[in-house]
Structures are given as C-alpha cells and as structure tokens.
Simulated scan of single mutants.
Amino acid sequence: MLTIGNMVPDFRAETNCGAIDFYDWMEDKWCVLFSHPKDFTPVCTTELGEAARLSAEFERRGAKLIGLSVDGAERHNDWSKDIEKVTGFTPAFPMIADTDLKVSKMFGMLPADAEGSAEERTAADNATVRTVFMIAPDKTVRMAMAYPMSTGRNFAELLRVLDSLQLTANNQVATPVNWQQGDDVFILPSIGDEQAAEMFGSWTSRLPYMRIVPQPKMADAA
C-alpha cells in the first residue's frame, strides 16, 4: 500500500462525473481519497452521505474529495439515489469507477495479481479497498488509514486529521493526543532550544522534550 511520504503517481480514471487526469483534477489542493469495496453496501452508503454533508467543510480547508469503488460509473449514479434517500445528501464529488482494479492496485489496496471483473467480484473479495488517503498539494501521501467493512469511518475525525496535517505542514509543531483546533501544540523535538526561542519566544515544559506552545495561526486555505 502507498504509505506516508510516497508520491502518488498520476493516473487517468473514469468517474461518475466523467474521465479525470488525477493531477489536473487535484490542482494544487489537498485531496482526501476514500475507497469502497462495492456499491450498494450499507456502511458505505452512510459514509458517502456524511462526506456529502461535510463537503463544504473540506472545501473550506482547500481539500477536494474523491471516492472510489470497484463498480461502474452508472452504478455509482444509481447508488447516489439511495445515498440521498437514506442520508438526505447527494455526493457532488466524483467517484472513481475502478472496474479494472487499476487504481486499487496502484494504491496497493489490492494485490497486483488480483483478477476478475467488477461484476464477478464481491465486496468480500474487495475487503481491503477500505482506505482513506490524505494527499498533500505536492502529491505525497500524508495519511493512510484502513478500515474493516464492518466499521464506519468517522468523518469528523478525518477533518481533525486534515486540520493537524495542514497546521504541522506549515509550522514546526506537532499536535498531541485528542488535539482540536485552538489547543496547545508541541515544538518539534528536532528544533533546538535556540532556534525554538527565535521561532516561538517562550514555552512551558512538562518534560525536557515536551515544549508546549499555543497553536500557531492557521494559514488560509488555497
């Protein structure tokens, strides 16, 4: 599987919104790509509705959403009707129709020798296609998190992770456990005290390596 720090290769894919070239589609934004093993599955239906409900929050952070399922574009469109019926929200973001398994294999969600068409493969065959990738504007993976089919993803947590990634990408800090916007942060251990004093002024310490400062101001999203 593509892991943190890996470059995501450019690729062309069919979606329910038409064909895309990934780099061109992503532009210089952040990207949250989340995959599904099959259309018309109950957990994924609720997830896509929640993603649609929160889409403005991702957009406000300069992040683009894109889904993926090992089914065709027409099935994606039909599925959207069920998603709207159950959740009240219709996804406006594209969903990759990965019928040939190409993108799933490229991301390492399926083994390179996986065979069978979308029609032949069941959700259980594609159980590992349940991953969220957060991709930075430089096209590197900054987070990869896999979920079992029986456990719905928490999109509020994904927003929290995205906030942390964007904050720490532009400042020499790390966020502690259960961090939320506005909470204190740590100065990176790799920053020496002299440089830290120039950057942050003063700090409080609970341990020598735990230098605590107020959260720096978040840069406006592109």
Score class of each variant (00 low, 15 high):
residue 155 F to M: 12
residue 142 R to E: 14
residue 162 L to K: 13
residue 165 L to Y: 01
residue 158 L to S: 14
residue 184 D to F: 06
residue 164 S to Y: 01
residue 158 L to N: 10
residue 181 Q to K: 10
residue 142 R to I: 02
residue 175 T to A: 08
residue 171 N to C: 03
residue 167 L to E: 07
residue 176 P to D: 01
residue 182 G to V: 03
residue 175 T to V: 15
residue 145 M to T: 14
residue 170 N to R: 02
residue 154 N to C: 14
residue 164 S to H: 02
residue 182 G to T: 04
residue 159 L to D: 13
residue 161 V to G: 10
residue 164 S to Q: 11
residue 144 A to S: 10
residue 147 Y to F: 15
residue 162 L to Q: 13
residue 176 P to E: 03
residue 175 T to G: 11
residue 171 N to G: 00
residue 161 V to F: 14
residue 175 T to E: 09
residue 180 Q to L: 05
residue 151 T to C: 00
residue 143 M to T: 14
residue 177 V to T: 15
residue 185 V to M: 03
residue 152 G to S: 04
residue 147 Y to A: 12
residue 166 Q to W: 03
residue 156 A to M: 07
residue 187 I to E: 05
residue 158 L to W: 11
residue 151 T to W: 00
residue 146 A to L: 05
residue 180 Q to C: 06
residue 153 R to M: 11
residue 165 L to R: 06
residue 145 M to E: 13
residue 151 T to N: 01
residue 179 W to P: 12
residue 174 A to Q: 02
residue 143 M to H: 15
residue 178 N to R: 05
residue 151 T to P: 00
residue 168 T to A: 00
residue 142 R to W: 09
residue 164 S to W: 00
residue 176 P to N: 14
residue 148 P to L: 04
residue 143 M to K: 09
residue 163 D to K: 13
residue 182 G to H: 08
residue 150 S to I: 08
residue 186 F to V: 05
residue 173 V to Y: 06
residue 145 M to N: 07
residue 144 A to H: 07
residue 162 L to V: 10
residue 182 G to E: 04
residue 179 W to Y: 02
residue 187 I to W: 01
residue 175 T to N: 09
residue 167 L to P: 13
residue 154 N to E: 10
residue 174 A to W: 00
residue 155 F to D: 08
residue 151 T to K: 00
residue 151 T to L: 03
residue 147 Y to E: 02
residue 175 T to D: 03
residue 158 L to D: 14
residue 150 S to E: 15
residue 153 R to A: 09
residue 176 P to M: 05
residue 144 A to M: 13
residue 185 V to C: 01
residue 161 V to H: 14
residue 163 D to R: 13
residue 175 T to C: 15
residue 149 M to H: 03
residue 176 P to Q: 12
residue 170 N to C: 03
residue 174 A to N: 04
residue 144 A to F: 05
residue 172 Q to K: 15
residue 149 M to F: 03
residue 185 V to A: 08
residue 150 S to N: 12
residue 163 D to A: 12
residue 165 L to A: 06
residue 150 S to F: 10
residue 146 A to P: 06
residue 152 G to L: 01
residue 180 Q to I: 01
residue 178 N to C: 04
residue 147 Y to W: 15
residue 186 F to C: 04
residue 183 D to Y: 08
residue 168 T to C: 04
residue 148 P to Q: 11
residue 185 V to F: 01
residue 157 E to D: 15
residue 179 W to L: 07
residue 148 P to G: 12
residue 161 V to M: 14
residue 145 M to G: 01
residue 157 E to Q: 15
residue 180 Q to H: 11
residue 171 N to E: 00
residue 149 M to D: 02
